[in-house]
Structures are given as C-alpha cells and as structure tokens.
Design a protein around this nucleic acid. Sequence first.
DNA 1: GTCAGTGCAAATAATTTGCAGTCTT
DNA 2: AAGACTGCAAATTATTTGCACTGAC
Lengths: 163, 163
Amino acid sequence: MKKRSQNEVDSWCTHFEERCRERGIRVTPQRLAVYRALAADPSHPTAELVHGRLHAGMASLSLATVYRVLEFLESEGLVRRVSSPGSVSRFDANLARHHHLVCRLCGRMEDLEEIASMRVPFAGIAPRGFDVEQLDVHVVGTCASCRRAPAKGRPTNSELNYR
Amino acid sequence: MKKRSQNEVDSWCTHFEERCRERGIRVTPQRLAVYRALAADPSHPTAELVHGRLHAGMASLSLATVYRVLEFLESEGLVRRVSSPGSVSRFDANLARHHHLVCRLCGRMEDLEEIASMRVPFAGIAPRGFDVEQLDVHVVGTCASCRRAPAKGRPTNSELNYR
DNA sequence: GTCAGTGCAAATAATTTGCAGTCTT
DNA sequence: AAGACTGCAAATTATTTGCACTGAC
C-alpha cells in the first residue's frame, strides 16, 4: 500500500498540533494517533480501517473512539469526510483542494489533482443565503482491475480491512 | 414540497417504460410506482422517504422492495444515487448533467444547473485504464435556514420523513 | 474536584437477505 | 412449469450512545 513520506507526515502532524493548540483543542494520544494514521495513508481509509492500522501499536484504542475522534476532527475542519454513493464514510487528512477518483465497484478512492480545466470558482454558484464551504468533485467509474475481475458487490467494511 | 409538473413526470415515466422494454426489464407496478415517485420529487428522497410517499396508494409495498428497486434501477443506469458525506443514500431520477447543492447540516440537496464555468470535460482527467462514467459535483455548505436555526445534528432517516 | 476524553458493551439506524408465496411468460 | 419479483421478518453492517473510569488542569 502506498504511503506518504515520513517527512510529510511529520510535518502534517506538527501543523495539526499547532492548530489544535491555537484553538485550545486537547491533543490526546488517541487523537494524534488517529490523525497520524490518516495522514500517513492516502487511500482514504474508513474508521474501521484506521482502527485496524492502529491496533498493533495501541491495543486498547476502541473503534468507538476512532469514530468519535474522526467525527470531532471533521467538525473542526481538521480532516475531511469523503463519500462515495452508497458506501461507508472515508476520511482524508489532505485539506488542499483536490478531487477524487472513485471506483464504483470496489469503492477505492484516489486523489486527483485539480487540473486547470476542473478549477471551479466558488463565487456565484450557489443561491444567496447559502454559504459554500467546500466543493466535492468525484470522478466516478470503474477501475482497471475491477473491469478485469468484477467483484460480486461493493466490499463490506470489514472486507476492506484486508486488502 | 416542490414537485415536478405532472406533464414532465408523465413523459419521464413513458420514457422509462420504453427503456425498460427495450432491454427486456419487467415494468412491475412496484417499479413503476417507485420510479414515478422519484420522478415527481426533485428533493432527492431517500428510500424510506419514497416508501413513505407511496404507502398511501400502495399499502402493501414493502420498504425492502423499495430498496431493491432503487438498487436495481441504479444498476441499470435508470436512476442516479447521490450521496452527501456521512449521510444516507438519496436518489435522483434526473439523468441530465447537473450538480448538487448540499447542506452539511440538514442534508437537504437541491439541483444546481451546470453553469458554463463548472462544465468539466470528462476526457483526460482520469488515468488510463479507468473508465469514467459520471462526474459528481457537490457544492457543500450550510443553507440559510440552518444558519438561522442550527439543528443538533444531521437528521436521522425517519426524522427526514416528516418535513 | 471538575470536566473532557475514553473503553466497553449495548443500542440504534440503514440496508440486505432468506424464504415462501405470486405473478408473468 | 420456470423464473422473476415481492412481502415479511430476521440478519447484517455501520455508527452512536450510556455509563463508569481515568487523567489533565
């Protein structure tokens, strides 16, 4: 599985801690671990996947806490929740503007750089009164490996764990 | 609640039946009813909401069937499943290219015409091997009424029913 | 000490499935 | 008659919550 470089992850974590301190958010070991796992993994893991990755180093961490932490970090705008239709929630620590490439069959989700022709201006697209916070662009289709070996259905959360 | 005009709905249903016949898909009363309910309602209802709307005229229709029909129609490309992060599945009978305006707080979802500056070309945006089928653009934020009267959390599926 | 944060188990919400009956061809 | 489609109830999956405990200010 692809990972972000150690340096990049460290720098994200440092930035994360700064942001938290600025706002008086406690940086508990659990929060930092969840954030770090997310930052290290560009594959947009689910809560359960994050929990699985952390279990080795932090056996007592509960899945409920992972859900709580992710929910909280999202509400603070420190991570982003991404979705593909009919699938479980996935999360992303990358807050830079970018889009997502989503396989309809296996649910895999990759980052897609925002290319010039997809640069969409926020202003003026929503009716007055609506406060636009974020633009989600999902390019949905089928990935090469799914076309070769079509699965029976979208993988369940726990099936996702062991890819 | 806003509705599509009777004429428009009828024409969509006719077109729907033609498509089904072309492909040898049976048009059962349940399928037609579900499709019609979806076509009549531009608010992107959930499965449960569709079921609720139909219950008056078709008391025996089960929620499981609504789920099955929607799933099936989606797989046939006759309706579109749309999603907002962390929320339940919603459906859309409108297959014309358009975007969605989504309120992060109440989950309400409105159609947004694809304006020129948001027209995104399919070609060349995905890596080779990936077969692009559809582009989902979600403009996410908070709607005017939610900013006025913030709810405690995203409404649950059954709370959605009685708006 | 207070209060936020956590683990655990139980609860809830959304969606799917098994199976027996029904309708269509 | 064979297969597709449906209703009902039960099962499964994802996510949330109550409660008691622990640790930081």
